[in-house]
Design a protein around this nucleic acid. Structure first.
Lengths: 210, 210
DNA sequence: AGCATTGCCTACCGGTTGGTAGACAGATAG
DNA sequence: CTATCTGTCTACCAACCGGTAGGCAATGCT
């Protein structure tokens, strides 16, 4: 242990989680070896297995860490959703912000949805159902009040928009190329997000309420 | 070789491609072994390597086969896009149909976008740029004619919609669970697609032109 | 001081991976 | 009939995988 005190037990653990997140997101669970992760942190493989007794427990920990963070921001999202008219933008923007803040979260979720769809179904029931129900109710109320298009299918709409928010961030680095080069990545991302929010909003509200 | 003539060289090759497509889509490239694929076809691993000299060549062949099929239907899509007003629905529906017809196509593309973003960028430039440019021009013309919302960012819009069409089919089996159970998978898929098309259309056109 | 715990290490394990070598059966051509 | 080619097989390889055993230095508690 160096005398500068720069390393502690929990530090190594959190660095392992961070590198595992990064590598699982970039190369996938099967495409990442414990050697890759441990070497990215600067320790040997058995030391990693001291902190996380199996590769699968490491995967679970990576997901749990991300979902714990989601649970931290969820109250803000739900508050935004119920704080009155015109706050729909805030919900979408804050939700997108959660994934823009760390796109690996989006990549991890998309990979998990492909690799273990049953697991993601369970997580959706646990973590996004509350979000979805509130937004659905908001939409139905809006339909009654004539602010929201009558032909919106609330459940499907919510599923589409969540899917769009996550996957467009997950694959942003390449879908940005659809219409050719030009612009800095930052500019493209900002336009991308603005259009995402516009699509979400404009496909929901009637222009008169906009 | 059995005397019933049920197997020929090209038959084995195409069955290998089919099983490889299915397994790569379901478990990913790294998560699928040559043993898995060869056994799914009923031959041994070295026989697979006789047809496809390396695992990576097999991956390339799988992608090429899918993109060749895309190139077959692309002319229809482009024709629909340019055949006049009101045909926007047809473009979206036919493009979605390409992925609904075989959802493994969508899963393969999403996986490739995550695993090898640079490769997908290149493919986008080659295979979807023509599609995107035509749709962008259609949008800009619509904006000049006042049929399309003025604040649509055509490039970003197209990127979002393509992304939505592909990823919502790729992960349909779990995003369908966003709002809870009920309905048969078939019914859910049909509602899902209808809402997808509605979002695409309603976020683009002004209601007066709808 | 004595002793247990923590956290890392080297060395090793059985199993699996992508890939090769080479034999062999059946069809085909001269 | 002989020679070649095609497509499959068994047997094998080195490399790597996730995981274990056990040693060892530092820390901390009594």
């Amino acid at each position: 242990m160096p005398s500068d005190g720069s390393t502690s037990t929990s530090d190594v653990r959190s660095r392992l989680l961070r590198e595992a997140t990064r590598l699982f997101a970039a190369k996938g669970f099967e495409g990442t070896s414990l050697k890759d992760i441990s070497e990215a942190v600067g320790i040997r493989k058995p030391s990693l297995l001291y902190h996380f007794p199996s590769k699968d427990l490491l995967r679970q920990s990576v997901l749990e860490q991300m979902l714990a963070r989601w649970n931290e921001v969820l109250p803000n999202l739900l508050r935004a959703a119920t704080s009155g008219v015109g706050q729909f933008d805030a919900v979408v923007e804050e939700t997108v912000g959660f994934f823009v803040e760390d796109p690996d979260r989006a990549r991890l979720l998309v990979r998990e949805a492909l690799d273990r769809p049953a697991h993601i179904s369970r997580l959706i029931g646990e973590y996004v159902r509350p979000w979805a129900i509130i937004v659905c109710n908001y939409i139905r109320k809006g339909q009654q009040q004539g602010r929201v298009h009558a032909d919106v299918d609330p459940e499907s709409y919510v599923a589409q928009i969540i899917n769009l928010m996550i996957s467009s961030i997950a694959t942003f680095q390449c879908v940005g190329d659809v219409t050719g080069p030009g612009l800095s990545p930052q500019q493209r991302l900002s336009r991308h997000i603005r259009e995402l929010c516009r699509v979400a909003k404009s496909s929901l509200f009637l222009p008169t309420a906009n």
